[in-house]
Each structure stands twice: as structure tokens, then as C-alpha cells.
Amino acid sequence: MKMIIIIISMVLVNNYPLAQFLGICPFLGVSKDLDSSVGMGIAVTFVMVLATAVTWPIQQLLNRFGIGYLQTVVFILVIAALVQLVEMFMKKSMPALYKALGIFLPLITTNCAVLGVCITNIDSNYTYAESLVDALGAGIGFLFAMVIMAGVRSKLADQSRIPESFRGVPIILITAAILSLSFMGFNGMFS
């Protein structure tokens, strides 16, 4: 039961880009069309779960040696190495998947959502299984937000009716604001 609550709350209530300001750069930058937003969403979900699976045991190790303060340095290096490894592995053994997702991988290392989910899992004292579910939920929430955003943005392709100063980035931000306003409706679902 707790697992279901974690996953629903990560997808809807605490949606990463729309309720917690994590992963805004790819959320705004890669949501131009549906194909690339789905690809980016799946790639982020995959890396999030993988990174959590690796960093959670590492934190236990750091705690055992009393060097928990090295968390930031160790986590970011592990994530960077992990993304590189996944990219190399995919290129070699799964060329079809690499073609679909590979181009998003370099963008993911510096995605704050990935480091964010690893640190939140440690901070909220989740068990290993709960952490993995939490990361999965965060990834699905990200994918969900990306797909909605791509759908809305396809209607914004004609910019001629938008005031000149709001064309380009500002109108995308306004769209995100209205989307996050609607996601606020989920607030207090589990309290």
C-alpha cells in the first residue's frame, strides 16, 4: 500500500517539473515535439532508477565510514560515470535503443532531477525498495509532464497571435505556469 501511495504522490502531487522545480531545463527545452519528449522522459526514468539503485548503497557505505558529507561529490561523479557507461553499453549492444534514447543521455548528467531524486531518497530515510519505487514514480511523473507539455506546445506552433514580447520562451513559461496551477489541484490528496 505504501508503495502505491509513494508512486501516485510522485507522479501527481509532487510532480518533479510542475510542483518541485526539478528538471525544468529539459522539461522546457526538449518538449518541442511528442517523439523527443517521450524519448527524454523514458531515458530520464531509466537513469533515475539506475542512479538510485547505485547511490543508495553507496550512501550506506559513506555513513559507515563517517564521511556522509562527501555525498554531493560522490553522487554526481557516480551519476556522470553511470550515464557514460550506459551510453557506451547501449551503443555497443543495443543500437536500436541507442538511436532512440542515446541522444538524450549526455543531457541527463547535469539534469538536476536525477541528482535531486537520489538526495531526496536519502533525506527521507526510505528503504531500498521504497527508494526505487520513488525514483520510478518521479521518472513517470516527469514523462507525464513532458508529454502534456509537448501536446500543448504543438498548438502554440503558430505564434502570430501572441504579443511580440511574449513570443518564444516567455509563452512556454506561461504554459508551464497554467499546467502547474492545474497540478496544484492534486495537493493534499495524501495528507
Binding site: 510542483a19 513559461l173 506561461i174 508551464a176 505556469a177 497554467i178 502547474s180
Partner: peptide, 8 residues
Amino acid sequence: TMVPGGFF
């Protein structure tokens, strides 16, 4: 001061 206001 909440999330949508930041975007706005």
C-alpha cells in the same frame, strides 16, 4: 509565492 507564481 507558490509554484505557478514562479513560472508567471
